[in-house]
Lab assay of single mutants.
Amino acid sequence: SEEELEEFAKEVLRRGITIIVNGIRITEVEIFVKVLREILEKR
């Protein structure tokens, strides 16, 4: 749901943790923004 997305976004921003994806360091915020864009483009 959109509320869950908002909560996830807030949690990500609070933690600001960097994770490893395919050997490249990407912040969770960047991943969230990318996923959010993909979701919005599909609408």
Rank of each mutant, 00 (worst) to 15 (best):
L40A: 04
K34P: 00
K34E: 05
R14D: 09
R25T: 13
V33C: 06
K10E: 07
I20S: 05
G23E: 03
I24T: 09
E6P: 03
E28P: 04
E7I: 09
V12K: 02
R14S: 13
L40V: 03
I26W: 05
I17F: 14
E7M: 12
L13G: 01
F32N: 00
V29S: 08
R25F: 06
L13S: 02
E2V: 13
I20N: 02
R14M: 10
E11M: 07
A9P: 02
I24P: 05
I31Y: 08
V21D: 00
E3L: 14
E2P: 13
V29G: 01
I24C: 06
V29E: 03
I26K: 01
K42Y: 09
R37E: 02
R14Q: 08
G23I: 13
L40M: 09
S1C: 06
E28T: 15
S1N: 10
L40H: 03
E4H: 08
F32D: 00
E2M: 15
F32C: 00
K42P: 04
L40P: 02
I39T: 05
R14W: 12
E30L: 11
K34D: 03
E28Q: 11
E38D: 12
K10F: 09
K10W: 07
V12R: 01
F32T: 00
E7N: 12
R37A: 04
I20M: 11
K42E: 10
F32P: 00
F8Q: 01
F32Q: 00
K10A: 09
E3F: 14
L13K: 01
I26P: 05
E6V: 15
I24Q: 10
A9E: 02
E30H: 14
E6Y: 15
T18W: 12
E4T: 10
E2T: 14
R25I: 14
T27S: 11
F8A: 02
F8R: 03
I31F: 10
E11W: 08
T18E: 13
E41Y: 07
G23L: 10
L40W: 14
N22L: 06
G16V: 13
I31Q: 15
R15Y: 06
R43I: 14
E6C: 14
V29H: 04
A9R: 03
E30D: 11
E28L: 10
E4M: 13
G16M: 13
I24V: 11
I17A: 10
K34C: 11
E30I: 10
A9C: 09
E7Q: 12
S1W: 15
I31S: 10
E11V: 04
I39K: 02
V21C: 03
E4Y: 13
G16C: 12
R37L: 15
V29C: 04
R14P: 00
T18I: 15
E41L: 11
R15Q: 11
T27D: 07
R14I: 06
K42F: 14
I20E: 08
K34H: 05
R25A: 11
I17Y: 15
S1Y: 14
F8M: 03
E6K: 14
L5R: 01
K10M: 09
T18M: 12
